[in-house]
Write a protein that binds this DNA or RNA. Structure first.
Ligand SMILES: Nc1ccn([C@H]2C[C@H](O)[C@@H](COP(=O)(O)OP(=O)(O)OP(=O)(O)O)O2)c(=O)n1
Ligand SMILES: [Mg+2]
Ligand SMILES: [Mg+2]
Length: 1076
DNA sequence: ATCCTCCCCTAC
DNA sequence: TAAGGTAGGGGAGGAT
């Protein structure tokens, strides 16, 4: 993707999509000179091109296989020993209907292993659950009829139950089409299925047209005759003969029509061309037969042509303009539903979920044989679906074979919608993925446009991978339409035979063709696939590597994109052969060590990577760089709240939590033209700020607070924003935290603490004083030209001085406390200096809050520790309920700061008592109390004088006026910063702002104690205001102050004076001290 | 030297 | 109208 200016800084080159389209055209012209890809024969035997027979073949094959497996099942079941989990599925007897992910064999083995039954044949008496993946509607209706009320459940129910080690409710796993209310996570993880009716139609049609395909595609079987030659099988070549030789002789009746999903076609009464009419006819024949049983599925939601609608997605805003953040309050969600790039970008995560065992890494086992010379005998196959998005949506339109077709949101001949995929006839006109549809139409006016069908892509991808996993043990997923197989140890001797049979099965199962490249390593296999396409396969044997690469343009090498290609072009390198002329040392000098190495070995066809599964993901994020327009800050904040929700859901969906949060903003570049693309981001500066917190979280409210602060760092006019992204990194497994393995203890919070706010692109305040060079000077003044605040506390301090404080009262679970045995209670009460009894008395009796929502990350950290060390609930017999409304929550949303559990105090119990109650507790030395008492002193009796004023009241806050007229330059500066930072009463932003002017201040200047006191009071009052609701803000402020303290006597004194109070207050509220 | 952070680049 | 996302690799340059 090339946005108008994804490039940073002052790069001159800023290209729009239309320009890059031109790039494509040029490249294309060059490519056109490459020899026509001829094929030597058709692949897969004429008998199996009809889809229906293909399916039944597949089914009977599976049945046979299952029979065998059933025998094995019985055998194994009788001998397998019972384990703890062996009764997981006791009483559950599943019948697997149709194609599933994972395969029915896998499901069967799960059932066997965990005490369930697996039925090969449906029987109402024996089967308790029908397991089924999403199906076409027609099938669903049948299924519904015959299931007779039995639950029809998706296979993930089994997987998740196994993962959870308990039998989960099947309700949330009901088949989408059968469930009234499918619980939804986000558009990200569940593909909604509102277009099912169209799907059903598509499948039905498929069976009808299969005859046509059969007769029109006289494909012969001949996959043996081209061993070691080149291409095997090419149906489109044949169909090319049938239709037309030239791309320019496309029948007129398809001119500029939009091949809509057929349900939509029906709406267009005028159906003026043959193809449309035919379809309508076909549909008319089929529909009644299959849709009779139930009408509830042919929902009206498919009326809208290109906009996907999902039943449960806030069914409020059905029509209207959903094309920008201005018009659509639910923009984030709706946008992602329609985004192709979102679809392919998130596919990997869905795959992970569907193939949990198969997608994990397995390349280590063979690491030994490969270290030095991997090439020696490896056989790698690369399989890639041909023009995937197009193939899927036109598989039931034989009349379009040989005609140029593309998938795109729009058919507007001067629109700026992007082509997602173009079939091969279209490519011969120069049409490419990523082009604007208007450019594509200019190249080929009779280009046929189809809309997206994401469900179908998902389904085909599942079938694709199911086949691959079935045929090969080592599969590495590249994308939804593409994978590597390590066929070195395959049972099938001949890799070409393996490849062709896999391709055949893919075609029979999906109705779409795939191509395959075979070679000794992944690089060459991938390169071979290019030659093989479309619908062919190609084997680059070791001897042929040299020849193949010699003339190959360098951008055919994976890893060489636009930029690298241009750089190499400047060195007059255009082909791999030329690239080889350059020494490795030279390449490494010019392009870096790894890149240089990569260029050197790739140009020689060397690639030592191993086929392997996925590794753990390192970051999770969401970007929206289209349709983003805000009229005011409210718009922007609303959008960010939704973006946080999205990211939080994704984190949870991945089972991870993160510590570093980065907010990216695309800001319209000054004097930039209107974006070439409708609602696009155009020419932008890319800005970003990030913050790292000490404990990983996936909590949406924490995210929202962090993001709000990050947004403040930009000092940006929201009208200038053209794109926003939120990314989370430094991921940790959420599972691990729940299981309480070491990671998340209060101790770790306080000792590994590290927070930073960084302006990555520009130093602080850049936007305000845009091209003010003094600003960058100011920032260079700070280490790393950022305000990153490092935690310098040595690690050993953590271990020698573990946290010794009890958790704050507010974190205690009132219910649990009430239920403590009296003697334990009084011990605890002592620990809390008698406050516990009051606390309990004042607490609401309800404290149901299982999720950590609304808690600061500190609270969460504490909670985690508690969870890990406190296990058993205590019997109920406590006399201590007074049930007064909790008072201490003024101004806070209800339900926040709700108590959790009671473990913390046990830290202070004597060892033997601790052992009694909780055997696995961190040993903690006694609490040192001095800071606490200091804190109380300060907060309780701060002297009168002017400090008494509420410095944070008013607008602007009172302190601003006071500081403005102060004789102290530093205070004046702060007041000034208040205005500069956009009238924010968020202190961290004001402090942040002052950084950019730090250099101006005479840091050694004189200041009075009085000045220090005023500043201290400001901070104390701030702490008071924020401590309950926003400890993050306090944390960040004090990290900043600490930074300042290193440079300024003034701030040093302030910092030293206030810190004790800060720590006491934190201790009081949270039972710990902040590590600054 | 080695690590870490902030980006850019690439691929689908 | 239109849905320009996502995540990993790695280079440059600073911190250690
Ligand atoms: N810029 C792009 C690139 C790809 N895709 C989507 C549509 C493609 O169909 C799918 C797979 O990408 P491929 O690179 O495999 O391209 P195709 O499968 O379309 O064509 P080919 O036959 O070259 O594989 O990803 C997209 O939407 N936009
Ligand atoms: Mg493809
Ligand atoms: Mg692909």
């Amino acid at each position: 993707m090339s946005l108008d200016s994804s490039r940073s800084g002052n790069s001159k080159r800023s290209f729009s999509n239309s320009i890059s389209s031109n790039d494509y055209i040029k490249k294309k012209k060059k490519k056109k000179t490459t020899p026509n890809q001829k094929t030597l024969g058709a692949a897969w035997g004429s008998k199996s091109n009809s889809r229906k027979p293909a399916f039944s073949d597949f089914a009977s094959y599976m049945t046979e296989k299952n029979r065998k497996l059933h025998n094995q099942f019985e055998a194994q079941a009788s001998t397998s020993s019972l384990t703890l989990s062996a009764s997981l599925f006791s009483g559950v007897s599943i019948f697997v209907d149709g194609f599933t992910i994972p395969s029915n064999q896998e499901l069967r083995s799960y059932m066997l292993k965990y005490g369930g039954r697996f039925e090969n044949y449906f029987s109402r008496h024996r089967v308790t659950h029908i397991i089924c993946s999403n199906l076409p509607d027609s099938k669903v209706k049948n299924l519904r009829a015959f299931s007779a009320g039995l639950p029809v459940v998706k296979p993930t129910w089994i997987l998740d139950s196994v993962a959870a080690n308990r039998l989960l409710s099947w309700v949330p796993y009901q088949l989408d089409q059968l469930a009234n209310n499918q619980p939804k996570l986000s558009a990200f993880f569940t593909l909604k299925s509102s277009k099912m009716s169209e799907d059903a139609y598509t499948n039905d049609l498929c069976q009808v047209v299969s005859d046509i395909e059969d007769s029109s595609m006289r494909v012969g079987r001949s996959d043996s005759e081209d061993r070691h030659s080149s291409k095997v099988g090419d149906m489109s070549e044949l169909s090319g003969q049938i239709s037309t030789e030239s791309d320019d002789t496309i029948p007129e009746n398809t001119n500029a029509i939009m091949m809509e999903e057929l349900t939509s076609v029906r709406e267009h009464a005028g159906g003026s061309n043959a193809a449309t009419k035919d379809e309508r006819n076909v549909k008319g024949e089929l529909e009644p037969a299959h849709q009779a049983p139930s009408t509830s599925f042919s929902t009206p939601c498919s009326d809208e042509l290109n906009v996907k609608e999902y039943p449960n997605s806030s069914g409020t805003k059905p029509s209207k303009q959903c094309h920008s953040t201005l018009a659509d309050p639910n923009f984030v969600e709706n946008y992602f539903k329609s985004s192709r790039l979102h679809f392919i970008g998130t596919w990997r995560n869905r795959y992970r979920k569907r193939f949990p065992t198969l997608s994990t890494g397995f390349n280590n086992e063979s690491a030994n044989n490969s270290a030095s010379d991997i090439s020696h005998n490896s056989v790698i196959i690369h399989v890639d679906m041909d023009c995937f998005f197009v193939s899927v949506v036109i598989r039931n339109h034989p009349e379009l074979l040989g005609q140029p077709v593309a998938v795109c949101h729009s058919n507007n001949s001067n629109g700026t919608a992007e082509i997602s995929s173009a079939n091969y006839p279209a490519r011969s006109h120069g049409i490419r993925a990523g082009m604007f549809v208007r450019d594509a139409k200019a190249l080929c006016p009779h280009l046929v446009i189809f809309p997206y069908n994401f469900e179908a892509y998902e389904e085909v991808a599942d079938q694709f991978y199911s086949i691959l996993h079935q045929r090969c043990k080592k599969v590495q997923a590249v994308s939804c339409d593409e994978a590597f197989l390590d066929a070195t140890d395959s049972e099938v001797e001949d890799p070409e035979l393996l490849a062709s049979s896999i391709r055949e099965e893919i075609y029979k199962t999906t109705g779409c063709t795939a191509s395959a490249g075979i070679a000794g390593n992944m690089l060459m296999a991938r390169i071979a696939t290019r030659t093989a396409k479309p619908n062919g396969q190609y084997h680059i044997t070791t001897e042929k590597v040299e020849d193949h690469l010699c003339q190959l343009p360098i951008n055919a090498l994976p890893g060489i994109g636009y930029v690298l290609q241009e750089k190499l072009k400047k060195q007059n390198v255009h082909t791999c052969g030329q690239l080889r002329m350059i020494s490795k040392a030279s390449l490494q000098k010019d392009y870096g060590m790894k890149t240089g190495e990569m260029l050197w070995i790739y140009s020689r066809g060397i690639d030592n990577r191993l086929v392997g599964g996925f590794q753990e993901s390192k970051s999770v994020g969401a970007d929206v760089n289209w349709g983003v327009r805000f009229k005011d800050i409210k718009d922007c904040e609303h959008f960010l709240i939704n973006l946080c929700k999205e990211v939080s859901l994704r984190l949870q969906g991945c089972g991870v939590q993160g510590r570093t949060f980065t907010l990216k903003i695309k800001k319209r570049r000054k004097n930039a033209d209107e974006p070439a693309k409708f609602m696009g981001c155009g020419d932008c500066e890319n800005l970003s700020h990030s913050v790292t917190i000490p404990v990983a979280t996936d909590n949406v409210e924490i995210l929202q607070r962090i993001v709000k602060q990050l947004l403040g760092c930009f000092y940006i006019d929201v009208k200038e924003i053209r794109g926003i992204g939120l990314h989370v990194s430094r991921l940790e497994s959420a599972e691990a935290s729940k299981q309480g393995t070491v990671k998340y203890t209060l101790k770790s919070w306080l000792t590994s603490g590290y927070a930073s706010i960084e302006n990555q692109k520009y130093p602080m305040g850049h936007d305000k004083q845009n091209r003010d060079s003094t600003c960058s000077r100011a920032c260079r003044d700070l280490p790393g030209s950022s305000v990153e605040m490092d935690n310098k506390i040595p690690n050993n301090q953590a271990s020698t001085n573990p946290i010794s404080t009890p958790p704050p009262l507010c974190n205690l679970d009132v219910e649990v406390i009430r239920n403590l045995p009296p003697e334990v209670f009084s011990e605890l009460n002592e620990i809390y200096g008698g406050k516990l009894i009051d606390y309990i008395a004042n607490s609401k009796s309800t404290s149901e809050n299982s999720s950590p929502s609304g808690n600061s990350f500190l609270e969460q950290a504490i909670k985690k520790e508690e969870e890990l060390s406190y296990s058993k609930p205590v019997p109920q017999n406590n006399p201590l309920s007074k049930n007064k409304a909790k008072q201490n929550e003024a101004g806070t949303g209800e339900g926040e700061a709700v108590p959790y559990s009671v473990c913390g105090p046990y830290f202070k119990l004597p060892a033997h008592r601790r052992a009694e109650i909780c055997s696995n507790v961190v040993v903690a030395p006694p609490l040192e109390n001095h800071s606490l008492s200091v804190g109380i002193e300060i907060s309780e009796n701060f002297p009168g004088s002017s400090y008494h004023d509420n410095l944070w009241a008013g607008n602007p806050p009172n302190w601003v006026g006071k500081f403005k007229v102060s004789s102290c330059l530093m205070l004046k500066k702060l007041a000034e910063m208040y205005y500069k930072s956009g009238l924010t009463s968020t202190l961290s932003l004001v402090l942040h702002q002052i950084i950019s002017e730090f250099y101006e201040l005479n840091l050694a200047q004189q200041f009075s104690d009085e000045t220090v006191n005023i500043m201290c009071e400001l901070l104390r009052q701030y702490i008071k205001v924020k401590i309950e609701r926003d400890i993050e803000e306090i944390y960040i402020c004090f990290r900043l102050l600490k930074r300042f303290a290193a440079k300024s006597q003034f701030f040093l004194q302030v910092y030293n004076s206030v810190c004790p109070y800060l720590q006491a207050t934190v201790d009081d509220n949270y039972g710990g001290t902040l590590l600054l």
